[in-house]
């Protein structure tokens, strides 16, 4: 049990030295800064490009537009960058054989998987919370209205989705021999989930709903209870995937 904190420290050090944490933090912060900016500037850009020929009166941007941008950026581009950055987390070590020494000296394999998962989760929570706070601050400053009452409730599903998504990445990375096939696995899973989302009956159970319904919850048109099944499925799937990753690694030749 004492090996887990040690391995966790190794993982955190690794993510720092390989610049993964830095890149993700910068990218997410830029997304967070862009969201209120794009929301504010869209009408101006339209006016500049169309001039007076634009007949309709454009509605003034509100905090709703700002948060819509935020969830669109993070939910599409953001998680893709996360997948690219972390797809090699296990497969690189398997490919290079850096785990051989540790495991033959008696390091349990589940410690490897768990330390990696905890380090991924920590990074996700820190980076996402930071970018959320940035968008929150700027949105409150530039859009002082009350159209988005449930900001925290809308944010919670995104955090939970990370639990699921990182478990998918870790499992795919454990299966794969290089980071590209790990990435492919993650993309396939997301593709399947988006396909499942076409069926209305399954929507509230689908983890994808956690990155799709944030705006509805933030505005108060949908309650968090409605997507609670999706959250439960996401958490359960995350636990199963981590256990699965341990099982796969146990059979894997290092």
């Amino acid at each position: 049990m004492r090996t887990l904190p040690t391995m966790l420290r190794k993982e955190l050090l690794e993510t720092w030295r390989t610049y993964r944490f830095l890149i993700l933090a910068v990218v997410f912060l830029i997304f967070a800064l862009m969201s209120p900016l794009i929301a504010k500037l869209t009408p101006d850009i339209m006016k500049m490009s169309f001039g007076k020929s634009l007949g309709i009166q454009l509605p003034k941007p509100t905090s709703v537009d700002s948060w819509t941008q935020f969830y669109k950026n993070i939910g599409q581009m953001g998680i893709f960058v996360v997948a690219i950055m972390f797809s090699g987390t296990m497969s690189q070590e398997l490919g290079k054989g850096t785990l051989v020494n540790l495991v033959t000296k008696g390091l349990p394999r589940w410690v490897v998987v768990c330390s990696k998962y905890i380090s991924l989760l920590l990074q996700w929570v820190v980076i996402l919370t930071a970018s959320f706070l940035v968008t929150w601050g700027y949105t409150a400053y530039y859009f002082p209205d009350h159209k988005t009452p449930h900001i925290f409730l809308g944010f919670l599903p995104l955090l939970v989705f990370g639990m699921f998504f990182l478990a998918v990445i870790l499992f795919g990375s454990t299966l794969a021999r290089n980071s590209y096939s790990g990435l492919l696995f993650t993309i396939l899973v997301m593709g399947v989930l988006y396909l499942v989302n076409l069926f209305k009956a399954a929507q509230n159970y689908n983890p994808v709903t956690l990155i799709g319904d944030n705006m509805a919850i933030t505005q108060g048109t949908k309650t968090l209870v409605k997507i609670a099944p999706g959250m439960a499925v996401a958490v359960a799937a995350a636990v199963l995937l981590v256990i699965g990753a341990v099982a796969v690694l146990n059979r894997q030749k290092l």
Partner: peptide, 15 residues
């Protein structure tokens, strides 16, 4: 919008 532009530029340059 300088309060937004400055941090964006700093982050891009740092990266």
């Amino acid at each position: 919008y300088l309060p937004i532009f400055i941090p964006i530029i700093i982050l891009e340059l740092a990266l």
